[in-house]
Structures are given as C-alpha cells and as structure tokens.
C-alpha cells in the first residue's frame, strides 16, 4: 500500500535543519544514507534526498488531481483526472519500490522534498483565485497546473535516467534503470496529454469566439445558481 501523506503514523523521518526541530526518534543523519544505492558509485545521502523529493512531487500531484477532479465542470476532464490519479498512485508506488530497492526508506522526507512540497502546495493554492476567473479560464488554469506538475515529473525521471547512466554496473544501476523505464512513459504521456488538451482548448476558443462566449454564459449561469444558494 502506498503512502499518500508522510506523517508520524506512517513512520516519517527527517534530517535536522537550521530552522527545523525534530524529535530524536524521528531524526536521521547523512551517514545513515551512505549505503543508499550501494555499489552504484553515487553519493547515497544526495541520492536519497533527491528521490525523496521525486516521490514527494508525485504525492503532491495526487492532491492536485483530486482537487481538479472535484472542481472541474468538464466531464471529459473529470474522467481523465480520475484516470490520472490512478496512474499517479502507481507512480508513487514505483518510486517507493525504487527507494526501498536501493536500501532506503520511502517515509524519509528530505529537505529537497520539503522544498518540492512547498512549490507544489503553491500550485494547488493558485487555484484558490478561481473566483476571478470564468469557467474556461479556470479549466485552463487547472490544466496549466497539471502540466507544470507533469513537466516536473518528466524532469525528475530524466534525472533518474541520468543517475542510472552514471551509476556503476550492478544491482543498484539495474534498479534505477528499471524504475526510470517504468516511470518515463507515464510521465511523458501525462505532459503530452496536458499540452495537447491545452492546445485544443485554447485554439478552439481563439478560432471560435462562440466557445468563449459559451464559457461566459456558463459563468453567468453559475453565478445565478450561486446567488440562489448564497443569498445576498
């Protein structure tokens, strides 16, 4: 079973940082990661930090997809966001297996992971400004948010491939290579889908102003309903 949110109950551990306090039983140190990816010739602590950030990004992607799924008014997008959530859950599973396969702990939340979560949190929170957007603009913003996340996935998998290429021959390298192969297709597919969908939506609105007007009409309809349920 994959972890969607790393927390004390799931066995979370972190490194100490200049502005972070951690209870002793939750503390890990760099030397504990020296054997991470043993035999690869790569720096274990750095690699552990990076992979923690990569899996954190996938987990945050789940949050983004859940809110997009809940909020979109477009049935096609809703259905696709649901599928993507399932595929992202699989990606989390792959990252966790990779980390375990390299001798690490998927419950490790690295400083790089914290930074990733901070960035991804802001992507989700950007959608809190949807009140000033018409429905079409909101759908576009949602897709853009997903594309930003998907592109980061592609970059993360590319980095993983680069680590595999630079690794010494052996079991660790094979594990890295295998995971990169599994993850790359889905990551690229997600980015391509979002890019294509954005293009279709934008071009449709550019070529057919009525599409945009339909969006504006929908906004008025939504406002009317909103005013009914929210008096005043």
């Amino acid at each position: 079973m994959v972890t969607t949110a790393v927390r004390p109950e799931t066995g979370a551990v972190i490194k100490a940082g200049p502005m972070v306090t951690v209870a002793p039983d939750r503390l890990v140190q760099d030397q504990q990661f020296h054997d991470f990816g043993a035999g690869s010739g790569l720096g274990g602590p750095f690699l552990a930090d990076q992979l923690s950030a990569f899996v954190a990004h996938e987990r945050m992607g789940l949050n983004l997809l859940r809110t997009l799924h809940a909020r979109t008014d477009n049935p096609t997008l809703r259905s696709r966001y649901g599928e993507l959530e399932g595929e992202t859950l699989q990606a989390v599973d792959t990252w966790e297996r990779l980390i375990r396969g390299l001798g690490g702990n998927p419950q490790y939340a690295s400083p790089a992971g914290r930074a990733t979560e901070g960035l991804d949190n802001k992507v989700v929170e950007a959608l809190l400004l949807s009140g000033s957007a018409d429905p079409m603009t909101f759908e576009q913003a949602g897709l853009q948010a997903f594309l930003a996340g998907a592109n980061q996935c592609v970059a993360n998998v590319a980095l993983l491939s680069a680590f595999a290429e630079e690794a010494d021959d052996g079991a660790a390298r094979e594990t890295l290579t295998s995971a990169a192969g599994t993850l790359s297709q889905a990551a690229a597919g997600h980015a391509d889908w979002a890019t294509d969908m954005l293009r279709k939506m934008a071009v449709a609105q550019a070529k057919h102003p009525t599409t945009h007007k339909i969006g504006q009409a929908a906004e008025k309809a939504v406002d009317a309903v909103r005013n009914v349920v929210t008096p005043g």
Binding site: V6, A12, I14, V20, V22, A23, R26
Partner: peptide
C-alpha cells in the same frame, strides 16, 4: 525559533 516538521511532529 525553529519550527516542528509537519511530517514527523507528534500531533
């Protein structure tokens, strides 16, 4: 002061 980390902090 330093802050707790939401992943590891006891509730």
């Amino acid at each position: 002061r330093r802050h707790y980390d939401k992943h590891t902090a006891d509730p």
